[in-house]
Design a protein around this nucleic acid. Sequence first.
DNA 1: ATATATTTGTGCGTATGTATC
DNA 2: CGATACATACGCACAAATATA
Lengths: 239, 239
Amino acid sequence: MAIWQNISDTLVEEIEKGILTPGGRLPGDVELATRFGVNRHTVRRALSHLQGQGLVRSERGRGTFVVEDAIAYRFGSQTYFEQNLLDNMRVPSRRILSTIIYGAPTAIALQLQIKAGSPILTAAMLGEADGIPVHLARLHFPVERFPKVEAAFARIPVGQSSQISLSELIGELGVKSFRRKTARIKCRLPDAEEARYLKMAAQDPVFQLEILNISDSDMPIFYGVTSYCGSRVEFILDY
Amino acid sequence: MAIWQNISDTLVEEIEKGILTPGGRLPGDVELATRFGVNRHTVRRALSHLQGQGLVRSERGRGTFVVEDAIAYRFGSQTYFEQNLLDNMRVPSRRILSTIIYGAPTAIALQLQIKAGSPILTAAMLGEADGIPVHLARLHFPVERFPKVEAAFARIPVGQSSQISLSELIGELGVKSFRRKTARIKCRLPDAEEARYLKMAAQDPVFQLEILNISDSDMPIFYGVTSYCGSRVEFILDY
DNA sequence: ATATATTTGTGCGTATGTATC
DNA sequence: CGATACATACGCACAAATATA
């Protein structure tokens, strides 16, 4: 087995044994390198992998720390971000990053049951727990079906953290309630943009959830593609 | 932005544009390094990230290849591995890696509603699609509740690919049908053992599903912890 | 079948950049 | 401002798996 794997395993043991406690700081790169008698790169590879496993978190200029527990995100047909965070004793907040109206690409048009090229409003927003970003959502609304959607989003300040109720916003469109129809879940490393917005390392994986939300009468309301930081959440499905 | 990120983005573009087609081989490390005018390590970092994003797959001694589509795995309360693979036009097979009986650790005992230390049978098995490993499952059965479980597993050859019907095996225990009660889904990098069994790179993420299966009368049947290779599957949830 | 070349994987050494303290 | 600590990049060498002559 590779040297960095052995170092990784050793550090995992020390974390599990409680020698390193959640929130605690690990020794620095160079110190670990001398301790294990290897080059600093080798230690860094081990730490990088531990970070991808969601066990530690490295912060430039500060150090590497053992991570706390992830948020248990209950995922049903009618669960909401805010309630989930409150259940986990976290303070939820949302932050609109941008809204833009443009012609729908075929993949999104297909989901929304509109013609390709029909105008859609795409809103990018961040979901945060105690100020730490948890997910990056890109929501796509069919503008011709919901003409008020632009005005509804225009009222929300861009770039600053705020209390947004998605269900209230949808209510303004004349939709009483909505629910998930299908969800597609992938697991992959983030691209540069996602990693930047989510303040996460490139080697830390994300969940990608693609969800079509429909009304009681099965009309598509919006199509959302959301990336969740893998080390900060885990999903719970009940039956 | 880092140099390796730019190279990664460039290669993503070329894949999306179709310059590099699924199944096709990318130029080697050194060739890409000279092309981009960087060190081989820098190219390797870009390729490593693309692999974690599920876009390419590197094989030692052979090269780096653009990957084909992932398996769309339909995930309900009563879905089975075999049927899912057949729906995706893949040939399913299973491989028992090991079975062992030992005292249940508290976490598993809690799920199975047995006393910690009570004997459990843990079976490790691989699920394969067209001979390629897709998931590594570790199933935990309470032995005192199902005394026949050892004999049932003893009939299955170890280490070789075979057609195993999990529902048939459970039927031998005297259980007519079972269903998921809860599922917990995580997303992380694999440990060394998982990566080896699943024949995947260490920087390629996995889904980890922890599932408690119960009988019609809500009695715990078995508790399973399954790691799915993230680049080879995606989950579909219907409502 | 054997040897050789190719290609990816790992590790060491060095240097520099960047954020934090 | 300097010291500290993580992040990126280059260069060299060798190992391991595969392909090829």
